[in-house]
Nucleic acid binder design. Structure first.
Lengths: 244, 244
DNA sequence: CGCCGAGTTGAAGCCTTTCAACGCTGGTGG
DNA sequence: CCACCAGCGTTGAAAGGCTTCAACTCGGCG
């Protein structure tokens, strides 16, 4: 179980066979520990591996010619990150640890072998990539067509939905390890306006804050305002070929 | 060659073996012809197949609770679309034909079998999915952090880069089958502001228009202003397992 | 011939940004 | 041990970019 990031993740969607577990363990390399703020991969840098998040939060981001930054996505335990190196040997985004993290290496040549040995795993990884794509689409829609408070609300709902996957029980509050600058870079807003928007939501009584802790007071109102849909549930696996 | 959408696309990245071609042909089902404006798949509708674009342009879009629309992506000949149905049986986006189109069905159970029979194809499809993800990230960055004229410039550069893949020679002008409303929905702008922005670029002398025809006069200036990078080039295939 | 969608333009208003300043906290070095 | 500094959060005021509302033109289609 020491190097089982991928097994844990895929096991959420499928009952893995022993052979599949074995093959995954064989593909995974040693783990890497990161401190909050550390950069795992830099945009434009060489990259020949994916990483599986075992513990902690990270984000991927890109820099603009104008000096700005866009945070593309937040990554949590179980996520497969750095996938752009499957298509190119240069990383398309920077991966930065938000909290202290542990990630596991998954060299892409090993992944190639895993694809051959375990086609069911290959199919599931493809389905997960498709789901990632939909998650990106959701974000695009939010940023492209919604105002500041809807963007912020969507982010909070999304984080909470994601935390519920692993946390099991009912979650209505969580620690947010992001600065308001981070939130702004994720939502396409300035930190100043993020601050005003947060305080407006607070004043409206739909959220509460206590330090880093955020509590969602009126989840229904947030969902109603944003049209948020939780995509972290099941992934359909019926079409996958049988396990080897 | 009649049903070879996928072969043509994958052949851009790999030399396919006969067995691989055969397996792909076996997975593809009959073609479907669409008229401009036709909806191939509706958001929320059942979907058990992908589609390969053989001819024409389409776009995928989502509707907002507030009544707006976000166009997520434009699709061209060779693209694999409707991939959200790999993860769920309900489509996450609407697929609409922009011009008259021909698409080929690729049932997901067939794709599952293809994954098992031809692991190299599976790996390549995964790499393509990863590249799609990066393309979405680029769009997110553009919309999240750039002004109207940069967004529009990026769209034009992106379309041109994509057309160059299939058109071979030097392309500096193309027919744009999009309304200004479409462009606005793709860029997160109103059609009114799209219009003003187009005319400003025209007045600045970086583009020219003649009906639907758009000519990029000063490509370097557009690239400079936007930091655009063409991702339509090679996909790295060195990590793929050998062909069967 | 008339209507509708697409493109165009002007004016006003709003949301978000920009600029600026200040309090607070945690970490660092003297 | 404590002073200082840097980053973060917060707030106000002014500016700006984009939207909204409205009106008018043009071309294609019934």
């Amino acid at each position: 179980m020491q190097l089982s990031g991928l097994i844990a993740r895929l096991g959420r969607h499928l009952d893995l066979t022993d052979a599949e577990r074995e093959a995954i363990l064989h593909a995974e390399r040693g783990e890497r520990r990161l401190r909050a703020g550390d950069v795992l991969v830099a945009e434009g840098g060489e990259s020949h591996a994916l990483y599986v998040v075992r513990q902690g939060w990270l984000h991927s981001s890109t820099k603009l010619v104008t000096g700005g930054r866009q945070i593309l996505r937040f990554h949590y335990a179980g996520d497969l990150i750095g996938t752009s190196s499957m298509a190119w040997s240069q990383a398309a985004a920077t991966l930065t640890a938000i909290s202290d993290c542990i990630v596991i290496d998954l060299p892409k040549t090993e992944l190639g072998l895993l694809f051959r040995a375990q086609p069911r795993i290959a199919g599931l990884l493809y389905a997960i990539a498709a789901a990632e794509n939909v998650a990106m689409s959701d974000r695009l829609t939010t940023i492209g067509r919604m105002g500041a408070s809807e963007r912020l609300s969507t982010l909070l709902l999304d984080i909470m939905a994601r935390l519920r996957v692993t946390a099991g029980g009912i979650v209505d509050s969580f620690d947010l390890p992001l600065t308001q600058t981070d939130i702004g870079d994720a939502l396409g807003l300035t930190k100043v306006h993020v601050n005003r928007t947060i305080r407006a939501l607070e004043k409206a009584g739909v959220i509460e804050r206590n330090g880093r802790r955020v509590r969602i007071v009126d989840e229904a109102a947030l969902v109603e305002a944003t049209g948020f849909t939780d995509r972290y549930g099941e992934i359909e696996t019926g079409w996958l070929p049988p396990a080897v």
